[in-house]
């Protein structure tokens, strides 16, 4: 589903590469943690997958798209098949929970009757069926992140990218989010989650890919956060 072949990324503002000759493979339906300290290249990797940036060298594949070579006008199609969740939720403060989720479908031109049926379904799935008309300011952090996940998942993406989705949440709420992501993973969606959350990684026992200074430092199936840290 995701394949990186000798991918390097050098930013003009820095002498050291943000990603340095990284090769990795993620199968369809896998759940992968992407760990490493700040500046190790996690965000760069996610940006390359989303075609926010193009690799300096190497090839990035998502599904059957050569992402780095994708024509600009094809980029929206790629992104429609990928979901994205962030540490800071990125909800629109002037729209309700349901409107926030519907927004992701409206702007890619989904018909209204589809939106009307799909949005309540996905809100039920993230256990927010009763809060469809709340404003984001009325939600707890965990609830806000559930809305963000609902928005990312509502179009049934092939891949869900999560960038520190539990970074702003207390451990108990974080576990709830993790459970939700695993539930989404069980529907067949490939999940790639960048995180610093040792407890989450250790208890999930999923594949762990560690980046260090832009290089691939470790790739363990059923791994833990750090061996001797």
């Amino acid at each position: 589903m995701i394949r990186l072949e000798n991918v390097s990324k050098v930013y003009a503002t820095s002498t050291r590469p943000a990603l340095d000759d990284v090769t990795m493979d993620v199968e369809r339906g896998e759940f992968v943690f992407l760990i490493g300290p700040s500046g190790s290249g996690k965000s760069t990797l996610l940006r390359l997958l989303l075609r926010e940036d193009v690799p300096s060298r190497g090839t990035v594949w998502v599904a059957n798209w050569n992402v780095g070579r994708l024509a600009r006008r094809r980029v929206p199609r790629l992104r429609q098949r990928m979901g994205c969740v962030f540490q800071d939720f990125r909800l629109l403060p002037n729209k309700t929970v349901a409107e926030n989720v519907a927004f992701a479908l409206e702007v890619i031109g989904k018909p209204r009757h589809t939106i009307r049926t799909v949005v309540p379904e996905v809100l039920d799935m993230v256990d927010l069926g009763g809060k469809a008309d709340r404003m984001p300011s009325e939600l707890s952090g965990g609830e806000a992140q559930r809305v963000a996940i609902a928005r990312a998942f509502v179009n049934r993406p092939l891949v869900l990218l999560a960038d520190e989705p539990t970074g702003n949440l207390d451990p108990e709420t974080a576990t709830g989010i993790m459970t939700l992501l695993e539930r989404i993973n069980r529907t067949g969606t490939t999940v790639l989650m960048a995180t610093h959350d040792r407890q989450i990684v250790d208890s999930a026992r999923r594949r762990v890919v560690e980046l260090s200074s832009g290089r691939l430092a470790r790739d363990d199936h059923r791994g833990v956060y750090g061996v001797a840290r």
């Binding site: 989303l50 929206p76 992104r79 429609q80 990928m82 994205c84 992701a104 890619i108």
Partner: peptide, 8 residues
């Protein structure tokens, strides 16, 4: 957000 979810 629109760009991210693949709006043209």
């Amino acid at each position: 957000i629109m760009r991210l979810v693949g709006a043209t």
